[in-house]
Every structure is written in structure tokens, then in C-alpha cells.
Design a protein around this nucleic acid. Sequence first.
DNA 1: GAAACACAGTTGTCATACGAATTTGTGGCG
DNA 2: CGCCACAAATTCGTATGACAACTGTGTTTC
Lengths: 232, 232
Amino acid sequence: MSALDTALHGLRALIADGALRPGDRLPSEGELCERLGVSRGSLREGIRMLAALGVLETRHGSGSYVSELRAADLIGSLSLTVGLLPMEGVLELTELRRILEPHAAALAAARIDVDTVERLSSLLDEIEASDDFEEHSRLDHAFHMTISEVAGNDALTSLINVLRSRSRAYRIPNAGDAAQLKSHSDEGHRAILRGLAEADPVAASAAASAHVAYTEYWVRRYSGDYVGVEPT
Amino acid sequence: MSALDTALHGLRALIADGALRPGDRLPSEGELCERLGVSRGSLREGIRMLAALGVLETRHGSGSYVSELRAADLIGSLSLTVGLLPMEGVLELTELRRILEPHAAALAAARIDVDTVERLSSLLDEIEASDDFEEHSRLDHAFHMTISEVAGNDALTSLINVLRSRSRAYRIPNAGDAAQLKSHSDEGHRAILRGLAEADPVAASAAASAHVAYTEYWVRRYSGDYVGVEPT
DNA sequence: GAAACACAGTTGTCATACGAATTTGTGGCG
DNA sequence: CGCCACAAATTCGTATGACAACTGTGTTTC
């Protein structure tokens, strides 16, 4: 077993066994080196790996701490890497969105309150008025994230966030296509909001499903492997 | 910007910009240190972080390589950490399973062939005959993974695998409860398989949904926050 | 009481050295 | 020529020492 494995599994075991709980501070690097029998370099590599996965957080001059170990945070650690996926991988993720986003919309429809509906509505006003790509992307993201937050499952929200972060990065080069996409997207948003406002999970879910499917259509179209007819 | 950030973002940029593609070997650590202007220690910490996230793979004496960057692999990197989640987090994940597994079952029902149905059936024979916890757990896992593989989306399979790996770890201490769980679980498996064999997505999905819900019932029951009546 | 300071403890970074594994080059042999 | 054995070079793995940067705390000073 390599020194790195020793450090990694040693640290993980400290948490798994309950010796270290969320929020706790780890012993200093020097002490951990002695206890685990590895050099400081190997130990630090192990700490970094767990930090990359969202399990540990290190503060310069203070120490390393066990994170709160929320499912949403661990899932969120993927956001650093999904941006590296090639196009084929993005389609797999879009399929996951097609499952999760309608579900989130249905849950949200059952739980949403009037104030949130109002906030989403004014968000759509802004979106429709915006013609700057960056701003539009930001507002669009806020709209969808608000919905999944209302759904009430943080892990679900985080997962949707990770999945969306990838498709969101694309900018449609053709101006005509971009305008068509925006127009259709605006309609889709209104349809989702109608479902939410009427507390109709089926309608909200169906609208969200159509919305993701439309996104997927454009991803396929620009990734070159599109086969079929244009969506209506 | 810290040296570690420099190394991490430098490496990530090499991949994001296309200078390094899946399968490529990275320049040696010495050369990367010069190019990025950081020490070998800091560089290695960056490499380890990307390795933990499934983006890089290092082979002793040979070099570091860009992974295939499959969505399934990146998602699979979570399996090291989900085992550390406290019980509340597990319930969030079970809710995700309640969304994903029925969907996978529905997809599988539309795509499954006779041979696979036969294989699943004999797998269930083994499961029902088994009374060893470890073996039962392994076979149960094989049954569910086969279904999600048939569904045809590797990212979905990997995600379900990660989510299941957590709930699977629990052993029901009470012998009577364990027997009841197994009996009910066996029935659920047969119901799912019937849906698959009849190529009935709705039936398969409903059976999978009930199966996950039953698991969730036991998780809640043993985590102490169960409120409600027993499932039928 | 509040601000400024000094100090100990901790992580961040670098440089160097050597061990361990792989890859490559080389020479000899059939 | 093809193949094998062996040595050399390359590369990652690990350890050590040193110092900078930062944090938290207690103390001094006004």
C-alpha cells in the first residue's frame, strides 16, 4: 500500500469511524504525519484529494476542517470537472436533466407560494427584456435554480445545477438561431411558470420536460449528430 | 492566486483548451513545474485533486494521463465520499433514487431482450436462495445494475450505482426485520422483472418505485425519524 | 475599553535528494 | 533479421529540511 493510500484511507477512516465529525478540526499536519506514518508531502496530497471531493476544507494558518458533509456539497464538487466533458458526454447529462428537472418542477408546483411565483414572474420579465448573452444566461440560471430550490431537496438542486452548468456554457453562434432559441425558450419558461402558479404538478412537469428537450435539440444540432425533424 | 490554484487551473486549462485530449500523456512533472512556475509539490497536489475527481490518472514510472472523460467516470468519483454522509444525507439520496431507478426501469423495459430477462430471472433465483448477507447484497446489486445498464445511459447507471452504494451498506440488526425485508424485497424484484419481461415500462417503473420506497421506509425506520404507518 | 503589538502554532511553498517503477536503448545471440 | 537480456535513462513516489504567509491569542499600551 502506497504512502498516499495510507494517508487517504487513514483520513477517510477518521471520519467514517466518527473520530472526526462535521465541522471538527483535524490534528495538525505534523501530528497526522506521525500518527499515520507518512511524510508531510504524502499527507498533504491525501488531504487535497478529500478537499477536491468536498470532504475537507483547509484554511491557511488555521488548520483543516471536516466539511458539513451535505450531499449537495459533495455533488457540487463535480462542477469543476463537468466543464471538461466532450460533447457526447453532455448528451448523457442532458438526458439526466430530462429526468430530474421535470420532477423538480412537479415538486415545486406542489409547494410553491404566491411570493415566489411573483418573483419568478418578474425574473421572466427581465429575461425577456434582456439581450445580453451573459445577463440572459445568469437570469435563466436563477429562474431554474429557484424552481429546484422550491422543490425542497438540496441534493436534487445541486445535481441539477451541476448538470445545467455544462449546457449553459454554449453560445449559439448563428444570430438567427439564437433569436429563435430565445423566443422558444421564453415561451417555455412561461409555460413552466403557469404550471407552478396553478399548483399543477403535471403541467409544470410537462412544460419542464419540453423545455429540456428543446435544449437537447440544439445541443444535438450543433454537435453535428442531429437526426430527425425540427421540434414544433 | 496561490501556487496550488495556479497548478490546478493551469492543468485544467490544458484540457479545457484542447491542448491535452483524453488518453494523452501529460508532460513530465519537471516540465510542468517550469511551464506553470510552481514547485513540484504544489503541482503534484493539483494533479492529485484532478485525479480524485477522475480527470487524471497517474502511473508510477510512466506519467500522468488524461482520463477518457466519460460522464460515468466523473460521477463515479463520488463513490469514495458518499459513504461518509450522515443519515439525513442518505435520505436525500434515496429521494434521488426514487426518481432515477423507476426511470431506468422504464427505459430498460423498452430495450431489454430475452437473454437478459433470463439472466435476471436466474439471478433472482440465487438471491431468493441466498441467506448470506454479503452474497445477497452482491447479487442484489448485480440485479439492479444490470437493469440500469440495459437502460442504456452510462451516466445514469453510474449515478444510480453511487446512490445505491450508500444505502446498501446498512445491515438490519433485528433478525425478524431482516427476514421481513428480504421477503418483501424478493417480491419487489419479481414485480420489476415481470414488468421488464412484458416490455411494460409503466409496470416496471411502478414496481421499481415501490421497491425504492420500501428501502426508504427501512432507512427512515432505523434512522429514528420515521413517522407514519407501515407500508402494505 | 480599544487598538496595536508580539508570539506561538499552522498551513503554503520551495528545493534537494533518493527510492521505485517503467520505458527505452543497446548489445549479443540464435 | 528477430528475439531476449541487460543496462541506462526517464518518470513518478517519498522523505526531509527550511522558510514564508497567515491565524489566533494573549499582552501591552494608550
